Amino acid sequence: MSDATGMSNEDPENGSTVRRTPVLVSAGVVLLLVAALLVWWRISEGTANASPPGTASAEAGFSRDMSVHHQQAVEMSFIVRDRTGNQEVRTLAYDIINTQATQRGMMLGWLESWGLNKSSSEPPMTWMGHGSMYEAKDGSLMPGMATNTQLDRLREAKGKDAEILYLRLMTAHHKGGVDMARGAVEMADDEKVVRLARSMVDGQQSEMDLMADMLAQRGAEADR
């Protein structure tokens, strides 16, 4: 005899109870499976059809060059951290270390996922059409980057002198970085690259405004 829910019946031959799944539930499971398969197929098709950026693309060039640019900003920030006890400057340095090290990791990860080398034999900023416009010198590979001589001066400076030199060097560094990030916003097609570049423009411009105030407090201004 069937129970009130229709979930079980007695087997008329041996008297045992046979559990049966309602037709409505079975149909629902099938529909869910079909829907899941359709979603998976669409995602797979989109992934298969999307070509990763090539080695000469704006995405690859930006990721390579900005990774190098960011690495120096992190290095300068670690240097000043040990050359001053001023909490405001140290806080700025920590922020730059954390932000730019994280962004650098993202860009290197993209290059890895695209199957591309993390360095190139082409001059920096070739992807922007500026490969021959900047003459690398004394470790300064791109606009805004400090020279090795300037980094040595920062390592030797202390207190207020170290703070002013760091703020000046980092302001110049950010100007070069913002110009490069704007290039990526205009030239890249990959939306995640464009989003990151746009966030760099906004974040570094805000930090340049802050550093201008910090220099003024110390009776100095950024190098022109």
Rank of each mutant, 00 (worst) to 15 (best):
E13M: 13
T17D: 05
T17M: 12
T17L: 09
V18F: 02
V25K: 07
S26T: 15
G28Y: 09
L37Y: 06
L37G: 14
V39Y: 03
G46P: 01
G46A: 13
T47F: 11
S57K: 02
S67F: 02
Q71H: 02
Q72Y: 00
Q72G: 05
M76C: 09
I79W: 00
R81N: 14
R83I: 10
T84C: 04
G85E: 15
G85R: 06
T91E: 06
T91N: 02
A93T: 03
Y94P: 01
D95Y: 02
I96Y: 00
I96C: 07
Q100G: 05
Q103G: 11
Q103V: 02
L111M: 06
K118P: 00
S120Q: 09
P124S: 09
M125Y: 11
W127Q: 10
W127F: 08
G131M: 08
M133N: 10
Y134W: 12
Y134T: 02
K137A: 13
L141C: 03
P143M: 08
T147I: 03
N148K: 01
T149M: 08
R155M: 08
R155S: 10
R155K: 13
L165D: 05
Y166F: 10
L167T: 11
R168Q: 15
L169H: 01
A172N: 15
D179L: 05
A184P: 05
V185A: 11
E191H: 03
V193A: 10
S199Q: 04
D202G: 04
D209K: 15
D209W: 00
D213W: 03
R218D: 05
D223C: 09
R224L: 06
R224Q: 04
